[in-house]
């Protein structure tokens, strides 16, 4: 059984000023599959992730989610750049979880989660709220709906951020080092939530430094270095029998 491709990244180049960070990335993520992206700092992992939901506009190449081009419209022989309004609408299909949570500190947990469904998808308030409460229960925070983000621990904040991303019922979830800003004892609770999502068949791309977690949860591991994908494969292959020197050197350092 081969699942259909959910995310397709084709020939993506991205530079900031004179510095090119991504030198042509090709990657396909199948529906229901979990892809872990690993690599040293500065290898372009986060930039790649931010290109997927068009927070960064790729200089060349394209990204499509469930067959829909992100940020562009197909024209005759050209790509038309979409207006911000349309891109905002497309982002509903792509959940994004930030390293630093980026919850809205002046809104309660519940308001953080219902904001996008109500005002991006225009769903009725009562429906959005019921949905939000169910999501909070799913991440184990049913009793903190009326708290403000700063009254929560880092781990709880990140779980709220995951619930907030899920509230749009995205086709794919992107995680940008979701546990890097957390105390070691809080990492577990966030990984548990992601593990649950993986078991539930959510398509995910996770940029992470948690090797053990990647090995356990990921269907595919991608190793990036200097803006290129060096190696791709199932965890057993990439971790136990890496074919590239660069991968071996990285794993030797982190394992």
């Amino acid at each position: 059984m081969t699942a259909r491709p959910m995310v397709e990244i084709r020939g993506v180049h991205k530079g900031f000023g004179t510095l090119e960070v991504l030198h042509g990335i090709d990657l396909t993520v199948a529906e229901g599959e979990v892809t872990a992206v690993l690599g040293p700092s500065g290898s372009g992992k986060s930039t790649l992730l931010r290109c997927v939901n068009h927070l960064e506009r790729a200089d060349r190449g394209y990204v499509s989610v469930d067959g829909e081009l992100i940020g562009y419209r197909r024209g005759r022989g050209v790509l038309h750049e979409l207006k911000e309004k349309h891109i905002l609408r497309q982002r509903g299909a792509i959940g994004f979880v930030f390293q630093s949570f980026n919850l809205f500190p002046h809104l309660t947990v519940l308001e953080n989660i219902t904001e996008a469904p109500r005002f991006a998808l225009r769903r009725p308030a009562a429906e959005a709220e019921a949905d939000a409460r169910a999501l909070l229960a799913r991440v184990g925070l049913a009793d903190r709906a009326d708290a403000y983000p700063r009254q929560l621990s880092g781990g709880q904040q990140q779980r709220v951020a995951i619930a907030r991303a899920l509230a749009l019922r995205p086709k794919v979830l992107l995680f940008d080092e979701p546990t890097s800003a957390l105390d070691p004892e809080l990492v577990g609770e966030v990984l548990d939530v992601i593990r649950d999502l993986a078991a539930g068949g959510t398509t995910m791309i996770i940029v992470t430094h948690e090797i053990g977690f990647a090995r356990e949860v990921a269907d595919t591991v991608v190793f990036m270095s200097d803006g290129r994908i060096v190696e791709t494969g199932p965890p057993s292959q990439v971790f136990d029998a890496p074919s590239h020197e660069r991968t071996r050197a990285f794993l030797a350092k982190v394992l």
Partner: peptide, 9 residues
Amino acid sequence: EAAAALGIP
């Protein structure tokens, strides 16, 4: 960024 990522108008 978070607001943009959530597609809020």
